[in-house]
């Protein structure tokens, strides 16, 4: 033991204060969990008592009904088409928007702050909720689904892109300005070459996101494979459901793989 008055007394490895804080945080997290799991009827007890439901469903999914695949494929392709169109349109619109949101190109906060604010708001709205609203306006079909995907991915893409633009090397921009280039030329010669690979990469990433999102848009009548999935589940036709799940799984894995390979080569 240390005996000098000014020395801190040894109280174990960590100080009491740290111990107290960690315990308090721990108790709050666990306590709140107990509360929420009871409130949402999702405690471990519920999991135990509900296990038969899961087992029954899992059993009834097999064997998948393979011949149903021919009905699923056209819907899958429609889903992919929705994602392709939405990603393309969102990518085109995101270019001017991200340029306007970049503080290094448009230092005037009255330009970039409002644009960013709108994009931030768009990103918080779930795509399926947008789809519901557009179905209300345009009626059921792929069009409201595409619109929902465009708006949601626009927010995402614009954010990724303006952050990239803000991180570019400003030196070439100065050089182009110094040799008499105007704003368009500065963008074409100094900004675009620096951000193009990332732009394509983000576009592919957003395409992946859109494929996943478009799978479920059919739940609310906005086109694609989700319609079949919802239908078959509500008819309790589980072998067909399993067929759809397998097809979704394979196509998502393939798309992610291709997209990842391209993105790796880009940067």
């Amino acid at each position: 033991m240390m005996s000098k008055t000014n020395q801190p007394t040894l109280q174990g490895i960590s100080s009491n204060k740290t111990k107290l804080r960690i315990s308090a945080i721990f108790i709050i997290i666990v306590g709140f969990y107990l509360f929420t799991s009871i409130k949402t009827e999702s405690s471990l007890l519920d999991l135990w008592s509900g296990k038969n439901g899961f087992i029954n469903i899992a059993k009834s999914l097999f064997p998948p009904h393979w011949s149903y695949a021919s009905t699923v494929m056209p819907q899958l392709i429609e889903t992919l088409h929705m994602a392709i169109i939405a990603t393309t349109v969102a990518a085109l619109i995101s270019i001017p928007i991200s340029l306007l949101s970049a503080a290094n190109l448009f230092p005037n906060p009255f330009i970039h702050l409002p644009v960013r604010f709108i994009m931030n708001v768009l990103r918080t709205i779930p795509d399926i909720l947008l789809a519901l609203i557009f179905v209300g306006i345009f009626g059921v079909g792929v069009f409201p689904g595409i619109m929902a995907l465009i708006i949601f991915s626009l927010g995402l893409l614009a954010k990724l892109l303006y952050e990239t633009i803000e991180s570019i090397d400003m030196n070439p921009i100065e050089a182009i300005r110094a040799s008499g280039g105007n704003t368009m030329q500065v963008i074409a010669y100094a900004v675009i070459p620096q951000v193009l690979p990332q732009f394509v990469s983000f576009g592919l990433y957003v395409f992946e996101v859109n494929v996943r999102a478009s799978l479920v848009l059919g739940f609310v009548g906005a086109g694609g494979i989700g319609l079949l999935l919802n239908q078959q589940v509500s008819w309790a036709n589980y072998p067909n459901v399993m067929t759809i799940i397998i097809i979704i799984f394979i196509s998502v894995v393939i798309i992610d793989y291709i997209s990842n390979k391209i993105r790796e080569r880009l940067i």
Binding site: D169, N171, P172, S179, G180, G181, Y189, P193
Partner: peptide, 26 residues
């Protein structure tokens, strides 16, 4: 008025030709 910088200020991902021709932008 031409300008030369400490950090060269070339567009690194662009080719030499593209950088040099950008002198004609004005």
């Amino acid at each position: 008025v031409g300008m030369i910088f400490q950090n060269y200020n070339l567009v690194k991902r662009s080719s030499v030709m593209k950088n040099v021709i950008s002198g004609r932008l004005g």
